[in-house]
Nucleic acid binder design. Structure first.
Lengths: 206, 206
DNA sequence: CAAAGAAGTGAAACATGTTTCACTTCTTTG
DNA sequence: CAAAGAAGTGAAACATGTTTCACTTCTTTG
Protein backbone atom coordinates (compact mmCIF):
# COMPACT_ATOMS: atom_id res chain seq x y z
CA UNK A 1 0.00 0.00 0.00
CA UNK A 2 1.24 3.38 -0.91
CA UNK A 3 -1.22 5.78 0.58
CA UNK A 4 -2.81 6.05 3.96
CA UNK A 5 -4.79 8.85 5.48
CA UNK A 6 -2.31 10.47 7.72
CA UNK A 7 -3.42 12.54 10.67
CA UNK A 8 -2.62 15.73 8.86
CA UNK A 9 -4.87 14.76 5.99
CA UNK A 10 -7.70 13.76 8.29
CA UNK A 11 -7.42 17.09 10.02
CA UNK A 12 -7.45 18.97 6.74
CA UNK A 13 -10.49 17.04 5.56
CA UNK A 14 -12.30 17.89 8.74
CA UNK A 15 -11.32 21.48 8.30
CA UNK A 16 -12.58 21.55 4.72
CA UNK A 17 -15.87 20.03 5.77
CA UNK A 18 -16.14 22.68 8.39
CA UNK A 19 -15.35 25.35 5.84
CA UNK A 20 -18.17 24.12 3.63
CA UNK A 21 -20.74 24.41 6.39
CA UNK A 22 -19.44 27.81 7.37
CA UNK A 23 -19.52 29.00 3.78
CA UNK A 24 -23.11 27.84 3.37
CA UNK A 25 -24.14 29.56 6.56
CA UNK A 26 -22.41 32.71 5.48
CA UNK A 27 -24.11 32.75 2.10
CA UNK A 28 -27.50 32.01 3.60
CA UNK A 29 -27.03 34.75 6.16
CA UNK A 30 -25.92 37.22 3.53
CA UNK A 31 -28.12 36.45 0.55
CA UNK A 32 -30.72 33.95 1.62
CA UNK A 33 -31.36 30.69 -0.15
CA UNK A 34 -31.22 32.27 -3.56
CA UNK A 35 -27.51 32.80 -3.17
CA UNK A 36 -26.78 29.48 -1.55
CA UNK A 37 -26.69 26.96 -4.39
CA UNK A 38 -24.13 24.19 -4.36
CA UNK A 39 -21.70 25.82 -6.80
CA UNK A 40 -21.81 29.08 -4.86
CA UNK A 41 -21.21 27.30 -1.57
CA UNK A 42 -18.34 25.32 -3.03
CA UNK A 43 -16.77 28.45 -4.46
CA UNK A 44 -17.16 30.30 -1.18
CA UNK A 45 -15.49 27.41 0.59
CA UNK A 46 -12.70 27.54 -1.96
CA UNK A 47 -13.22 24.24 -3.71
CA UNK A 48 -14.95 22.85 -6.74
CA UNK A 49 -18.54 21.74 -6.99
CA UNK A 50 -17.54 18.16 -7.45
CA UNK A 51 -15.30 18.11 -4.43
CA UNK A 52 -18.11 19.24 -2.19
CA UNK A 53 -19.85 15.98 -2.91
CA UNK A 54 -17.04 14.10 -1.25
CA UNK A 55 -18.09 15.76 1.98
CA UNK A 56 -21.84 15.69 1.70
CA UNK A 57 -23.80 13.17 -0.33
CA UNK A 58 -26.58 15.64 -1.12
CA UNK A 59 -27.71 19.16 -0.63
CA UNK A 60 -30.31 18.03 1.86
CA UNK A 61 -27.68 16.47 4.08
CA UNK A 62 -25.52 19.54 3.84
CA UNK A 63 -28.38 21.73 4.87
CA UNK A 64 -29.28 19.45 7.70
CA UNK A 65 -25.91 20.32 9.11
CA UNK A 66 -26.24 23.98 8.16
CA UNK A 67 -29.47 24.24 10.12
CA UNK A 68 -28.04 22.33 13.01
CA UNK A 69 -25.11 24.67 13.10
CA UNK A 70 -27.20 27.77 12.66
CA UNK A 71 -29.73 26.78 15.26
CA UNK A 72 -27.64 25.06 17.86
CA UNK A 73 -26.16 28.18 19.34
CA UNK A 74 -29.58 29.81 19.62
CA UNK A 75 -31.07 26.72 21.14
CA UNK A 76 -28.24 26.49 23.62
CA UNK A 77 -28.66 30.07 24.70
CA UNK A 78 -32.40 29.60 25.12
CA UNK A 79 -31.89 26.40 27.06
CA UNK A 80 -29.48 28.21 29.30
CA UNK A 81 -31.95 31.02 29.84
CA UNK A 82 -34.53 28.40 30.78
CA UNK A 83 -32.18 26.64 33.15
CA UNK A 84 -31.37 29.70 35.16
CA UNK A 85 -34.01 29.03 37.74
CA UNK A 86 -36.85 31.13 39.00
CA UNK A 87 -40.53 30.55 38.56
CA UNK A 88 -42.09 29.35 35.34
CA UNK A 89 -43.28 32.78 34.27
CA UNK A 90 -39.90 34.34 34.86
CA UNK A 91 -38.17 31.60 32.98
CA UNK A 92 -40.56 31.84 30.08
CA UNK A 93 -40.08 35.58 29.92
CA UNK A 94 -36.33 35.17 29.90
CA UNK A 95 -36.37 32.63 27.11
CA UNK A 96 -38.73 34.65 24.94
CA UNK A 97 -36.69 37.77 25.44
CA UNK A 98 -33.43 36.05 24.65
CA UNK A 99 -34.85 34.32 21.62
CA UNK A 100 -36.48 37.41 20.15
CA UNK A 101 -33.58 39.70 20.92
CA UNK A 102 -31.07 37.44 19.28
CA UNK A 103 -33.27 36.88 16.26
CA UNK A 104 -33.62 40.61 15.79
CA UNK A 105 -29.90 41.05 16.08
CA UNK A 106 -29.02 38.47 13.43
CA UNK A 107 -31.96 39.30 11.26
CA UNK A 108 -31.04 37.92 7.89
CA UNK A 109 -29.99 34.56 9.24
CA UNK A 110 -32.92 34.38 11.63
CA UNK A 111 -35.23 35.05 8.74
CA UNK A 112 -33.65 32.26 6.73
CA UNK A 113 -33.83 29.90 9.65
CA UNK A 114 -37.41 30.70 10.56
CA UNK A 115 -39.39 31.84 7.61
CA UNK A 116 -37.78 32.40 4.24
CA UNK A 117 -39.47 30.31 1.58
CA UNK A 118 -37.23 27.41 0.66
CA UNK A 119 -37.25 24.20 -1.34
CA UNK A 120 -39.64 21.65 0.11
CA UNK A 121 -36.81 19.17 0.44
CA UNK A 122 -34.87 21.52 2.64
CA UNK A 123 -37.92 22.86 4.44
CA UNK A 124 -38.33 19.46 6.04
CA UNK A 125 -34.90 19.73 7.60
CA UNK A 126 -35.55 23.21 8.82
CA UNK A 127 -38.79 22.27 10.48
CA UNK A 128 -36.94 19.75 12.59
CA UNK A 129 -35.04 22.47 14.35
CA UNK A 130 -38.15 23.97 15.83
CA UNK A 131 -38.63 21.01 18.09
CA UNK A 132 -35.89 21.86 20.56
CA UNK A 133 -37.52 25.22 21.25
CA UNK A 134 -40.83 23.57 21.77
CA UNK A 135 -39.24 21.16 24.19
CA UNK A 136 -37.69 23.96 26.18
CA UNK A 137 -41.12 25.48 26.63
CA UNK A 138 -42.62 22.14 27.51
CA UNK A 139 -40.06 21.78 30.26
CA UNK A 140 -40.88 25.17 31.71
CA UNK A 141 -44.60 24.58 31.57
CA UNK A 142 -44.39 21.18 33.19
CA UNK A 143 -42.22 22.53 35.96
CA UNK A 144 -44.70 25.33 36.47
CA UNK A 145 -47.62 22.95 36.70
CA UNK A 146 -45.79 20.72 39.13
CA UNK A 147 -45.02 23.71 41.30
CA UNK A 148 -48.64 24.84 41.19
CA UNK A 149 -47.63 28.08 39.51
CA UNK A 150 -49.70 27.59 36.41
CA UNK A 151 -52.97 25.81 35.81
CA UNK A 152 -53.07 22.28 34.47
CA UNK A 153 -52.89 22.29 30.69
CA UNK A 154 -51.61 20.45 27.68
CA UNK A 155 -47.96 21.46 27.76
CA UNK A 156 -47.37 20.29 24.20
CA UNK A 157 -50.21 22.39 22.90
CA UNK A 158 -49.19 25.49 24.81
CA UNK A 159 -45.55 25.10 23.88
CA UNK A 160 -46.33 24.64 20.18
CA UNK A 161 -48.56 27.66 20.23
CA UNK A 162 -45.85 29.74 21.83
CA UNK A 163 -43.32 28.68 19.21
CA UNK A 164 -45.77 29.59 16.48
CA UNK A 165 -46.61 32.90 18.07
CA UNK A 166 -42.95 33.87 18.34
CA UNK A 167 -42.15 32.92 14.79
CA UNK A 168 -45.13 34.55 13.19
CA UNK A 169 -44.80 37.76 15.18
CA UNK A 170 -41.14 37.97 14.26
CA UNK A 171 -41.48 37.20 10.56
CA UNK A 172 -42.71 40.65 9.69
CA UNK A 173 -39.94 42.54 11.47
CA UNK A 174 -37.32 40.03 10.28
CA UNK A 175 -38.26 40.15 6.62
CA UNK A 176 -35.53 41.82 4.58
CA UNK A 177 -37.85 44.52 3.33
CA UNK A 178 -39.33 45.31 6.74
CA UNK A 179 -39.19 48.84 7.98
CA UNK A 180 -37.57 48.98 11.35
CA UNK A 181 -39.71 48.49 14.39
CA UNK A 182 -39.24 49.36 18.01
CA UNK A 183 -37.44 46.22 19.02
CA UNK A 184 -37.74 46.52 22.77
CA UNK A 185 -41.43 47.12 22.52
CA UNK A 186 -41.80 44.09 20.29
CA UNK A 187 -39.78 41.92 22.64
CA UNK A 188 -41.72 43.03 25.70
CA UNK A 189 -45.01 42.60 23.91
CA UNK A 190 -44.12 39.10 22.88
CA UNK A 191 -43.00 38.10 26.34
CA UNK A 192 -46.18 39.47 27.80
CA UNK A 193 -48.28 37.65 25.24
CA UNK A 194 -46.65 34.34 26.04
CA UNK A 195 -46.79 34.70 29.78
CA UNK A 196 -50.41 35.72 29.73
CA UNK A 197 -51.24 32.82 27.46
CA UNK A 198 -50.25 30.45 30.26
CA UNK A 199 -53.28 31.70 32.13
CA UNK A 200 -53.61 33.20 35.57
CA UNK A 201 -51.97 31.82 38.67
CA UNK A 202 -54.16 28.98 39.88
CA UNK A 203 -55.72 29.27 43.33
CA UNK A 204 -53.41 27.83 45.94
CA UNK A 205 -54.36 24.37 47.15
CA UNK A 206 -54.85 24.15 50.89
CA UNK B 1 -64.72 38.82 -39.77
CA UNK B 2 -65.66 35.23 -39.43
CA UNK B 3 -65.38 34.43 -35.78
CA UNK B 4 -66.53 36.21 -32.72
CA UNK B 5 -66.67 35.02 -29.15
CA UNK B 6 -70.25 34.26 -28.72
CA UNK B 7 -71.85 34.22 -25.32
CA UNK B 8 -71.91 30.46 -25.27
CA UNK B 9 -68.20 30.34 -25.89
CA UNK B 10 -67.46 32.91 -23.23
CA UNK B 11 -69.51 30.90 -20.80
CA UNK B 12 -67.71 27.71 -21.67
CA UNK B 13 -64.35 29.39 -21.29
CA UNK B 14 -65.32 30.64 -17.87
CA UNK B 15 -66.48 27.19 -16.99
CA UNK B 16 -63.21 25.63 -18.13
CA UNK B 17 -61.23 28.12 -16.13
CA UNK B 18 -63.31 27.26 -13.15
CA UNK B 19 -62.76 23.58 -13.77
CA UNK B 20 -58.99 24.11 -13.75
CA UNK B 21 -59.06 25.79 -10.37
CA UNK B 22 -61.35 23.13 -8.99
CA UNK B 23 -59.16 20.37 -10.36
CA UNK B 24 -56.08 21.91 -8.79
CA UNK B 25 -57.81 22.28 -5.46
CA UNK B 26 -59.00 18.71 -5.64
CA UNK B 27 -55.55 17.35 -6.36
CA UNK B 28 -53.96 19.45 -3.65
CA UNK B 29 -56.57 18.32 -1.17
CA UNK B 30 -56.14 14.69 -2.14
CA UNK B 31 -52.42 14.33 -2.71
CA UNK B 32 -50.74 17.53 -1.64
CA UNK B 33 -48.43 19.52 -3.84
CA UNK B 34 -46.58 16.47 -5.05
CA UNK B 35 -49.61 15.42 -7.03
CA UNK B 36 -50.51 18.86 -8.27
CA UNK B 37 -48.18 19.56 -11.17
CA UNK B 38 -49.44 21.36 -14.23
CA UNK B 39 -49.90 18.26 -16.40
CA UNK B 40 -51.81 16.49 -13.63
CA UNK B 41 -54.05 19.49 -13.06
CA UNK B 42 -54.73 19.84 -16.78
CA UNK B 43 -55.56 16.15 -17.06
CA UNK B 44 -57.84 16.31 -14.03
CA UNK B 45 -59.61 19.27 -15.59
CA UNK B 46 -59.96 17.30 -18.80
CA UNK B 47 -57.73 19.31 -21.07
CA UNK B 48 -54.18 19.34 -22.32
CA UNK B 49 -51.21 20.91 -20.64
CA UNK B 50 -50.88 23.50 -23.35
CA UNK B 51 -54.49 24.56 -23.15
CA UNK B 52 -54.17 25.31 -19.46
CA UNK B 53 -51.76 28.06 -20.34
CA UNK B 54 -54.50 29.86 -22.21
CA UNK B 55 -56.23 30.31 -18.90
CA UNK B 56 -53.32 31.02 -16.59
CA UNK B 57 -50.05 32.55 -17.69
CA UNK B 58 -48.04 30.69 -15.07
CA UNK B 59 -48.30 28.20 -12.28
CA UNK B 60 -47.82 30.93 -9.73
CA UNK B 61 -50.86 32.79 -11.00
CA UNK B 62 -52.90 29.63 -11.06
CA UNK B 63 -51.99 28.92 -7.49
CA UNK B 64 -52.73 32.42 -6.44
CA UNK B 65 -56.28 31.68 -7.46
CA UNK B 66 -56.19 28.21 -5.96
CA UNK B 67 -55.22 29.64 -2.60
CA UNK B 68 -57.74 32.39 -2.86
CA UNK B 69 -60.43 29.86 -3.60
CA UNK B 70 -59.28 27.47 -0.91
CA UNK B 71 -58.98 30.16 1.72
CA UNK B 72 -61.83 32.45 0.91
CA UNK B 73 -64.54 30.25 2.30
CA UNK B 74 -62.64 29.78 5.56
CA UNK B 75 -61.90 33.44 5.83
CA UNK B 76 -65.53 34.27 5.22
CA UNK B 77 -66.72 31.90 7.88
CA UNK B 78 -64.22 33.30 10.35
CA UNK B 79 -65.17 36.86 9.49
CA UNK B 80 -68.78 35.95 10.03
CA UNK B 81 -67.98 34.40 13.39
CA UNK B 82 -66.18 37.61 14.29
CA UNK B 83 -69.07 39.76 13.16
CA UNK B 84 -71.63 38.06 15.29
CA UNK B 85 -71.30 40.47 18.14
CA UNK B 86 -70.56 39.94 21.77
CA UNK B 87 -67.53 41.02 23.67
CA UNK B 88 -64.00 40.73 22.33
CA UNK B 89 -63.17 37.58 24.23
CA UNK B 90 -66.33 35.84 23.11
CA UNK B 91 -65.73 36.81 19.54
CA UNK B 92 -62.14 35.68 19.63
CA UNK B 93 -63.17 32.36 21.11
CA UNK B 94 -65.76 31.88 18.40
CA UNK B 95 -63.33 32.61 15.60
CA UNK B 96 -60.64 30.35 16.98
CA UNK B 97 -63.09 27.54 17.47
CA UNK B 98 -64.54 27.88 14.01
CA UNK B 99 -61.13 28.11 12.39
CA UNK B 100 -59.67 25.14 14.20
CA UNK B 101 -62.74 22.97 13.86
CA UNK B 102 -62.95 23.52 10.15
CA UNK B 103 -59.26 22.95 9.66
CA UNK B 104 -59.48 19.66 11.49
CA UNK B 105 -62.44 18.63 9.39
CA UNK B 106 -60.76 19.26 6.05
CA UNK B 107 -57.39 18.12 7.23
CA UNK B 108 -55.50 17.40 4.05
CA UNK B 109 -56.45 20.66 2.42
CA UNK B 110 -55.91 22.64 5.60
CA UNK B 111 -52.47 21.11 5.87
CA UNK B 112 -51.67 22.10 2.30
CA UNK B 113 -52.99 25.61 2.86
CA UNK B 114 -51.19 26.14 6.13
CA UNK B 115 -48.06 24.13 6.38
CA UNK B 116 -47.09 21.63 3.71
CA UNK B 117 -43.66 22.42 2.32
CA UNK B 118 -44.05 23.92 -1.12
CA UNK B 119 -42.03 25.64 -3.83
CA UNK B 120 -40.74 29.01 -2.71
CA UNK B 121 -42.46 30.64 -5.64
CA UNK B 122 -45.80 29.35 -4.53
CA UNK B 123 -45.11 29.78 -0.84
CA UNK B 124 -45.13 33.51 -1.36
CA UNK B 125 -48.69 33.34 -2.65
CA UNK B 126 -49.77 31.15 0.20
CA UNK B 127 -48.35 33.48 2.81
CA UNK B 128 -50.55 36.25 1.50
CA UNK B 129 -53.66 34.45 2.58
CA UNK B 130 -52.72 34.61 6.22
CA UNK B 131 -53.24 38.32 6.29
CA UNK B 132 -57.03 38.26 6.29
CA UNK B 133 -57.04 36.13 9.42
CA UNK B 134 -54.66 38.49 11.08
CA UNK B 135 -56.89 41.38 10.15
CA UNK B 136 -59.92 39.71 11.63
CA UNK B 137 -58.09 39.38 14.91
CA UNK B 138 -56.87 42.95 14.72
CA UNK B 139 -60.47 44.08 14.38
CA UNK B 140 -61.57 42.15 17.41
CA UNK B 141 -58.68 43.37 19.52
CA UNK B 142 -59.17 46.99 18.57
CA UNK B 143 -62.87 46.79 19.34
CA UNK B 144 -62.01 45.23 22.67
CA UNK B 145 -59.56 47.96 23.53
CA UNK B 146 -62.02 50.66 22.56
CA UNK B 147 -64.64 49.09 24.74
CA UNK B 148 -62.22 48.85 27.65
CA UNK B 149 -62.54 45.08 27.66
CA UNK B 150 -58.89 44.38 27.08
CA UNK B 151 -55.76 46.27 28.03
CA UNK B 152 -54.06 48.58 25.58
CA UNK B 153 -51.65 46.63 23.39
CA UNK B 154 -50.18 46.38 19.94
CA UNK B 155 -53.07 44.80 18.07
CA UNK B 156 -50.89 43.86 15.11
CA UNK B 157 -48.44 42.06 17.32
CA UNK B 158 -51.09 40.20 19.26
CA UNK B 159 -53.00 39.27 16.14
CA UNK B 160 -49.90 37.97 14.37
CA UNK B 161 -48.96 35.93 17.38
CA UNK B 162 -52.43 34.42 17.51
CA UNK B 163 -52.26 33.45 13.85
CA UNK B 164 -48.89 31.85 14.41
CA UNK B 165 -50.07 30.04 17.52
CA UNK B 166 -53.07 28.59 15.72
CA UNK B 167 -51.07 27.44 12.74
CA UNK B 168 -48.23 25.90 14.65
CA UNK B 169 -50.47 24.13 17.15
CA UNK B 170 -52.53 22.70 14.30
CA UNK B 171 -49.65 21.59 12.09
CA UNK B 172 -48.93 18.51 14.16
CA UNK B 173 -52.51 17.23 14.25
CA UNK B 174 -53.05 18.17 10.59
CA UNK B 175 -49.96 16.44 9.24
CA UNK B 176 -50.91 13.45 7.13
CA UNK B 177 -49.01 11.04 9.33
CA UNK B 178 -50.38 12.40 12.61
CA UNK B 179 -52.06 10.05 14.98
CA UNK B 180 -55.48 11.27 15.83
CA UNK B 181 -55.88 13.65 18.69
CA UNK B 182 -58.81 14.65 20.85
CA UNK B 183 -60.09 17.41 18.63
CA UNK B 184 -62.44 19.09 21.07
CA UNK B 185 -59.74 19.26 23.68
CA UNK B 186 -57.37 20.75 21.16
CA UNK B 187 -59.92 23.31 20.04
CA UNK B 188 -60.77 24.35 23.56
CA UNK B 189 -57.16 24.49 24.55
CA UNK B 190 -56.35 26.74 21.63
CA UNK B 191 -59.25 29.06 22.31
CA UNK B 192 -58.24 29.34 25.93
CA UNK B 193 -54.63 30.02 24.98
CA UNK B 194 -55.62 32.84 22.68
CA UNK B 195 -58.09 34.46 25.03
CA UNK B 196 -55.69 34.36 27.93
CA UNK B 197 -52.97 35.82 25.76
CA UNK B 198 -55.03 39.00 25.48
CA UNK B 199 -54.37 39.53 29.16
CA UNK B 200 -56.74 40.12 32.04
CA UNK B 201 -59.66 42.49 31.97
CA UNK B 202 -58.28 45.96 32.64
CA UNK B 203 -59.52 47.79 35.74
CA UNK B 204 -62.62 49.80 34.93
CA UNK B 205 -62.01 53.51 34.46
CA UNK B 206 -64.09 55.75 36.71
C1' DC C 1 10.91 8.95 -7.50
C1' DA C 2 7.56 5.27 -8.96
C1' DA C 3 3.34 3.33 -7.56
C1' DA C 4 -1.02 3.51 -5.38
C1' DG C 5 -4.68 5.52 -3.45
C1' DA C 6 -7.43 9.69 -2.54
C1' DA C 7 -9.01 14.14 -3.20
C1' DG C 8 -10.09 17.83 -6.49
C1' DT C 9 -11.79 19.71 -11.06
C1' DG C 10 -15.46 21.51 -13.83
C1' DA C 11 -17.89 20.54 -17.83
C1' DA C 12 -21.43 17.58 -18.93
C1' DA C 13 -25.19 14.76 -17.64
C1' DC C 14 -29.41 14.39 -15.07
C1' DA C 15 -33.66 15.38 -12.86
C1' DT C 16 -37.68 17.59 -12.48
C1' DG C 17 -40.49 20.18 -13.33
C1' DT C 18 -42.78 24.42 -16.21
C1' DT C 19 -43.62 26.57 -20.55
C1' DT C 20 -43.74 26.97 -25.58
C1' DC C 21 -45.06 26.14 -30.28
C1' DA C 22 -46.07 24.07 -34.80
C1' DC C 23 -49.92 21.95 -35.82
C1' DT C 24 -54.87 20.31 -35.46
C1' DT C 25 -59.51 20.90 -34.25
C1' DC C 26 -63.39 23.60 -33.26
C1' DT C 27 -66.61 27.60 -33.69
C1' DT C 28 -68.55 31.33 -35.99
C1' DT C 29 -69.87 34.09 -39.86
C1' DG C 30 -71.43 35.30 -44.49
C1' DC D 1 -69.36 25.16 -46.77
C1' DA D 2 -65.24 28.29 -47.22
C1' DA D 3 -62.73 31.51 -44.59
C1' DA D 4 -61.09 33.36 -40.39
C1' DG D 5 -60.16 33.41 -35.90
C1' DA D 6 -59.65 30.91 -31.49
C1' DA D 7 -58.99 27.16 -28.61
C1' DG D 8 -56.79 22.68 -27.91
C1' DT D 9 -52.92 19.20 -28.40
C1' DG D 10 -48.84 17.08 -26.64
C1' DA D 11 -44.25 16.45 -27.74
C1' DA D 12 -40.36 19.14 -27.49
C1' DA D 13 -37.92 22.95 -25.67
C1' DC D 14 -36.51 25.42 -21.61
C1' DA D 15 -35.14 26.57 -17.03
C1' DT D 16 -32.97 25.76 -13.06
C1' DG D 17 -30.92 23.74 -10.36
C1' DT D 18 -28.26 19.23 -8.37
C1' DT D 19 -25.24 15.44 -9.18
C1' DT D 20 -21.91 12.63 -11.72
C1' DC D 21 -17.69 11.29 -13.90
C1' DA D 22 -13.52 10.99 -16.81
C1' DC D 23 -9.64 13.07 -15.86
C1' DT D 24 -5.98 15.66 -13.16
C1' DT D 25 -3.57 16.73 -9.12
C1' DC D 26 -2.01 15.75 -4.65
C1' DT D 27 -0.25 12.83 -0.76
C1' DT D 28 1.87 8.94 1.08
C1' DT D 29 4.76 4.96 1.11
C1' DG D 30 8.71 1.91 0.15
Amino acid sequence: MAYRRTETVVARLAETRERIVTAALKLVAREGYGGAGIPAIAAEAGLSTGALYRYFPSKAELFDEVFRRGSQREIDVCAEAAAQGGRARQRLTRVVEVFARRALKGRRLAYALLAEPVDPLIEAERLRYRLPYRDIFIGIIEDGMRAGEIAAQDALLTASAIVGALNEALIGPLAPQAKKTDQEKLINGLALFCVQALGPMPPRKL
